Simulated scan of single mutants.
Amino acid sequence: PRAYPYAALFRPPLLRRTLFLSLAWFALNAGYYGAFIWLPSLLVAQGYTLVRSLEYVLLITLAQVPGYLAAAFLVERLGRRPVLVAFLAFSALAACLLSRASSPGEVLLFGSLLSFFNLGAWGAIYAYTPELFPTALRGSGAGLVAAVGRV
């Protein structure tokens, strides 16, 4: 493969990819950790007991496994970008519905949908990211944008 210096990630044509993927990874991390770290506290603030809120979060997070598997299946059939965009859009919709949930059933349903689609987006972005960088910078590019997401 053609050699590229690390600095090529910050110059055209890779700059746009680096910036886009950095933003995508940052948003995905913020959405995931923001939702699942704060969800027990938000449920307690809505009047659920701490034990009940932790039970709900446990049940909700179980939906992550099928979401991840569904994305892994779909990325090969529909493509990485369409699956990533769809799972992110459905994550946003589920988050909006969860914020308006007024009953335990709605909390579990919309929380599980958020969990399913959010982890599916993780599966899609893990598959999509390396493809956007040339072979010589694939590990560096993917590592950089994932690190930006952790910020």
Rank of each mutant, 00 (worst) to 15 (best):
Y4W: 15
Y4T: 06
Y6W: 14
A7L: 15
A8F: 05
L9P: 00
F10R: 08
R11K: 15
P13C: 08
L15S: 07
L15V: 09
R17G: 05
L21Y: 07
L23C: 07
A24V: 02
L28V: 02
N29E: 09
W38S: 14
L39R: 06
P40L: 12
S41R: 08
L42K: 10
L43V: 10
V44R: 12
Q46V: 10
Q46S: 14
G47K: 08
G47D: 04
G47S: 07
Y48I: 00
T49M: 15
V51D: 06
L54A: 14
E55Q: 10
E55D: 15
E55L: 15
Y56K: 13
A63F: 00
Y68F: 12
A72N: 07
F73E: 11
L78E: 04
G79T: 00
R80K: 13
R80C: 04
R81Y: 09
V83W: 02
V85H: 04
F90V: 08
F90R: 11
L97E: 08
L98Q: 07
R100F: 14
G105W: 06
E106W: 11
L113V: 00
L114V: 10
S115P: 03
F117C: 04
L119Q: 10
L119A: 12
G120E: 06
W122S: 01
G123I: 02
A124Q: 01
T129A: 07
T135E: 15
T135L: 15
S140V: 11
L144N: 02
A146D: 03
